[in-house]
Design a protein around this nucleic acid. Sequence first.
DNA 1: ACTCGGTCGTTGACGTGTCACCGGTATGGC
DNA 2: GCCATACCGGTGACACGTCAACGACCGAGT
Lengths: 160, 160
Amino acid sequence: MSEVMGLDPADWAMWREMTTMRSSVDRALEQRLQRDAGISGADFDILHSLSVAEGNRLRAGALAESLGWEKSRISHQVRRMADRGLVERADCPTDLRGTWVVLTAAGADAFATASCGYVETLQGVLFSKLDEDDRASLRRVARTVVDGLLATDAQPSPTR
Amino acid sequence: MSEVMGLDPADWAMWREMTTMRSSVDRALEQRLQRDAGISGADFDILHSLSVAEGNRLRAGALAESLGWEKSRISHQVRRMADRGLVERADCPTDLRGTWVVLTAAGADAFATASCGYVETLQGVLFSKLDEDDRASLRRVARTVVDGLLATDAQPSPTR
DNA sequence: ACTCGGTCGTTGACGTGTCACCGGTATGGC
DNA sequence: GCCATACCGGTGACACGTCAACGACCGAGT
């Protein structure tokens, strides 16, 4: 019971360090976004997706898919952002069930204000510390792990 | 505006992939814990810290420090876990302000049940995909990034 | 003994993410 | 046209994390 059962202690230590790194970086980004533009990381993700979208608007479902979020999460987040004037809802004429989420001028401003600091922070805390080998390794690992999980999820009964 | 301003598109893609990897792995772990033992990842972290502690008990502050959580988060989490019988609170005789958090038999059982699947999942989705170079790279990156952030936080006025 | 700054843990309010479920709408087969 | 089915997005309840503020307590200096 001195360590977690059946796992290489070095691997366990690495897992802990990765967890710490992740929360530290997230924290730095959140704080920077809050300070620069008064928005959260989730706000930023939505604003980014809308900014790169055709006509600065997306259907709620497309937004969910582009971010890998659940639809209900999108709905809650968009409602809160609409309350603050960062986005607007609009009815979809071709599908009465659908909803467009549209970037407002205020939302575009907030994104423009925020993105510079966001990139700067990311560059400062993460990318500047990586050499080419690290980049290749990270990218390969991320892709392999995600692909592995997608393959597992696709199976009818993945475990047990 | 086609990509986020001033950042190498490859770096941006890597960041996205890292984010996806993180949430996928977290998701797999959460689901496994829920299925095996009916506990959350936060529950597991607390149970693990208590399991390796002397006498299966820790002061709330020590728990917070060992996990890098805020004290209030510990307090909320412990209250919820105490409601479910996974831990108990006990007064500290040497410091009347203090509180011991004590692992119960039910908590120890839940941790024993959960840890095997947790390790198995982690091994399956992550560690099994890593070679020695990846491990070294990840470990070095994690440590460098965290150290960098600690140094930044220590400064009186890091940015602007 | 007293006071005062610091520490311990808790609480309430708030924003957030997930889950189960719902009403309204589209769509393909009849 | 009609109907079963699937889909779209929203809602409410709940668990979670953060923040600011608090009461209780410790300990050092006087």
